[in-house]
Every structure is written in C-alpha cells, then in structure tokens.
C-alpha cells in the first residue's frame, strides 16, 4: 500500500509538468485560434488559412524542412558510422556537439560575415578560380546554415543506435556470405532505423518553424510558417490568426510523429 502511494507521489512532478506546460498551452492556442481580430468567436481564421497565401507558406515550409532533414541525414549517417569506428569516439563526438552550445544568433551573425560579398567563403572561391558570387540571401546559404545548426541533433541518435549495435551480428552476416552492401542494407540499417527516425523528428519539426534564419541568412527570400506566426503575434497583434497557424503546425507535427512512430519489433 505504502509503496503504491510512493509511486503515485513520483508521478506528481511529471503530471503537473505535462498539464501546465504541454496540455494547457496547446489548449490555449486552440482556444485563441477561434477568435477573430476583434475578439469575436468565429472560424474565419481557418477559412483564411485555406487561402493561397497561407497554403503556399505551408508548402514552402514543408519543402525546406524536408530538404534540411534530408541533407542532414545524408551527412549525419556516414559521419556517425565513421565515429563509431574511430578510437577516441567520445572525443570526436564531443567536438561535433560543442558548436550546439553556442547561441544560435551568434552563429547566424558569424555566417553573415562568412557568406558576405567580401567574406571568407568568397575569398576562397576567388582563390580556387571560381570567382566571387552572391552567397548570402540565397536558398543555398539558408539550407547550409540550417543543416549546420541541426546536424548534431541528427548525429547523436544515429551514433547511439550504431554504438549499441552488437558487432557479433555484423560478423554473423559476414560469415554467412553477405556482401558489405547486403550487410548494411539488411542488418545494420534496419537495426539503427530507430535512431534515424528520432534524428529526423528532432530536425524536421524545428526546421518547419524556423524564423530567425529566414531573415538573417535568407533575407526573407525564404518564408516559413514561423515567419507568419511571429508577424501575427508581434506586428499585427492578430493572435487568433497566429494561433491558427500554430494549430496547423502542431497538427502537422503530430502527423509526422505518427508516421515516423516507433513500433517495437522483436529482435
């Protein structure tokens, strides 16, 4: 009996946290989304969301978030694979994580300098004979910087999954005559898919609502849902519309988590 009480007691911090910081804010966002700009109850915000402006915004956000996630994965998987094989893997891992301790804004400003017309990147391009070109305020620089910022979050879960992989399984595959590619495709990758899924979630979801970078690095040539939310809360003070956009973001995130959800399979 006593033990059961204790267990209930341990639940208190968790339940309170979830109620106050997760459930309530989501409900509040949902609540606000049903009010028009004059504070009257209406669904006009939802009608407005399905106009070309906001639909285009949504598709735009999706496209860039997808691109960022895909490139991160493309770089992160081989990196994590290599890291697991190196001798001082914890040290190398640390070196990859360290940049994520630096404030995002500082990193963004540093990139303005690097990608600028007279920045280091253009000096390098001149040096190798390609010639200077506009880098700042392009899709390329936006995706590049976003990938740079998100990549530690992609590498970590994949590294953990690879690190936890039993080497005996790879040996067994070799002994049974599997080629290197088959071993990777049929053994290693399926066993680390959970790491990949986690990585994709942690990158895709924040990438969907990036807003500082869209201005600093992309010069508002890339517009995402995050930009729209920021504007509605700070400039137009139309909290209803801002909340509506947020509701759709939350919905999309739920769908993404469902799609990449974990199904425990027997190993």
């Amino acid at each position: 009996m006593n033990r059961r009480m204790m267990r209930h007691l341990y639940m208190v911090p968790y339940v309170v946290w979830i109620l106050v910081f997760v459930i309530t804010p989501i409900l509040l966002v949902l609540y606000y989304s049903f009010f028009d700009i004059h504070g009257n109850f209406s669904i006009i915000n939802y009608e407005r969301f399905f106009t070309p402006v906001y639909l285009k915004l949504t598709i735009n956000s999706f496209w860039y978030a997808f691109l960022i996630t895909f490139i991160s994965l493309l770089v992160a998987y081989p990196t994590a694979y290599l890291l697991v094989k190196t001798r001082h893997k914890q040290l190398w891992l640390l070196l990859i994580i360290v940049p994520s301790w630096i404030n995002l804004l500082l990193k963004a400003y540093a990139f303005i300098g690097i990608f600028g017309a007279y920045g280091a990147a253009n000096q390098f391009l001149e040096f190798i004979g390609v010639g200077a070109r506009q880098l700042l305020f392009t899709d390329f620089s936006f995706v590049f910087v976003a990938v740079y910022i998100f990549i530690p979050f992609m590498i970590l879960p994949i590294f953990n999954a690879l690190n936890g992989l039993n080497p005996a399984l790879v040996d067994a595959a070799n002994d049974l005559g599997a080629s290197k590619w088959t071993t990777f495709a049929r053994v290693i990758f399926p066993l680390t898919i959970d790491g990949v899924k986690t990585g994709c979630q942690v990158v895709f979801i924040p990438a969907l609502s990036l807003f500082m970078l869209t201005r600093l690095i992309a010069g508002n040539r890339v517009i995402t849902l995050g930009t729209a939310i920021e504007q509605h809360f700070l400039v137009t003070q139309d909290w209803g519309m801002g909340s509506t956009v947020a509701v759709f973001l939350i919905l999309i995130m739920f769908v993404m988590i469902r799609l990449t959800g974990f199904r425990r399979r027997g190993v």
Binding site: V53, K56, N60, I223, A228, Q231, H232, T236, Q237
Partner: peptide, 19 residues
C-alpha cells in the same frame, strides 16, 4: 486599426513570397 494593419501585413507577406 487592427483590421487594416492585418490587410497591410498579408499583402506584405504575399510580396515576400513573390519570386
């Protein structure tokens, strides 16, 4: 007024998305 400011902002948003 809030409503007109909203119109200005939506037009500005449309302009930003124009490529």
């Amino acid at each position: 007024g809030k409503e007109m400011l909203g119109v200005y902002n939506d037009l500005f948003l449309t302009f930003k998305m124009h490529h």
